[in-house]
Design a protein around this nucleic acid. Sequence first.
DNA 1: AAGTGGTCTAGACCACACC
DNA 2: GTGTGGTCTAGACCACTTA
Lengths: 251, 251
Amino acid sequence: MEVGLSFSVEVFNISLYREIAKKIRTKIKNGLYKPGEPLPRQKELALEYKTSRVTIQKALDILFNENLIVRKQGSGTFVSPNSLSALDILSSQYGGTTKLFSDKANVSTLVLNFAIRLPSLKECEKLNILETMPVYDIYRLRNLDEEPYELDRSIMPLSVISGLNENIVKNSIFSFIQNKLNLEIGSSLRKIGADKAKQDDIKYLKCKPNDPVLQISQTVSLKDGRIFEYSHTRHRYDKGNIVVFNKVPIL
Amino acid sequence: MEVGLSFSVEVFNISLYREIAKKIRTKIKNGLYKPGEPLPRQKELALEYKTSRVTIQKALDILFNENLIVRKQGSGTFVSPNSLSALDILSSQYGGTTKLFSDKANVSTLVLNFAIRLPSLKECEKLNILETMPVYDIYRLRNLDEEPYELDRSIMPLSVISGLNENIVKNSIFSFIQNKLNLEIGSSLRKIGADKAKQDDIKYLKCKPNDPVLQISQTVSLKDGRIFEYSHTRHRYDKGNIVVFNKVPIL
DNA sequence: AAGTGGTCTAGACCACACC
DNA sequence: GTGTGGTCTAGACCACTTA
């Protein structure tokens, strides 16, 4: 049996089920499949895309994890009633502050510190490295349309990320990692809390004394599991929220 | 070809690949498979569990989504270097405040309001219901070991959740939904921000004026996509953080 | 070149919902 | 009963890493 790509020319590197997921996602986005309505049966989809049912199921897995569809055994597959907010989330996903806002607003960065040093014990633990392995210590103020937005201290091990310089740090570290180092980001673990404004928040974020601050402490990993960033980011309380999407795990 | 369950007696309702995922998860938990080390090859696992490679892959999919393993094409499957924190997260997953703390601490609830009324326009939008469909309006103070912990206002449509009473609300609404109504929770969408303490925060959470407050606004859906809760929860800034785990989406 | 994980198929049976 | 999605198989080829 022939396997799909027989006489297509430029379809390397993207698998069929991802491609199908993409096409169905587009149909949901464009309202061809409407919230609450049933999708075609898996059998029909298999015919439509000239593939097997298992491949259709893998495509649906993706959309299910994106909360775009809902599956009812014995009944059918439906566009999620709240596919609209799911699409919102998806479009606002991943890539750090720069990517998140670069369409809508003007991001600028003031580098407050850029150094290489040895890690503290806590940093070793968080980054899963040894005390002898040097790290970047980067402290930055990010502005959005000339207004202070977030104050970010990032610690990154040179064993994972190397070749940083002030110019890169002034722009987007994430895009450097993804586009220049060709590393793939895998996952992040965040702790989100509130705190009182401290000296630096007042100085740089222009908070008033006693203003609340939203703080995110996170570690970020590559696809291969290596942790490349441990950071603390502090936000003005009146400048946006963190949006988080959560699926109940399969145990 | 026979299909697995031929002469087992009590294995209904739990699929093989979930079962295998569970077993491998346990081995990771118990240190039989150590962080950074390779798992047995898919071929070997298929032999070990007397199943096909595809089923092993479905099991590994689960563990991958839990961030417990890392996959390297051409090389092997490895226990994630930070499988420890991944396990931490997993054990602290889902079920509302009551479940989250009932092991460790004493949760008590003061019901400040419990009423049925018609929804506001915003609530209709968030809950995806009509203006004519009544909702519960529940306002509660949760205490942890006699200390005020969170202040929670939940709006729930009667079209989805019914049969609530003050006694249930005083205990765990989540457990009522899951165990009595037999509904399955699917996903949640949260916005997390910081705010200044307001009157009620001062009155009930014992915040001082100008104390920061951590606020979570969320909608929670069932497996079938129906939204059953729109809520605002306010936390004292010195009583814990929100922990969030994020995987980079497959697009 | 050999071995790993990734993708895909065609066909089967199971669990569940709806009529 | 009929039809839906869920699970599972045995076998094949592809893409990638490692040597």
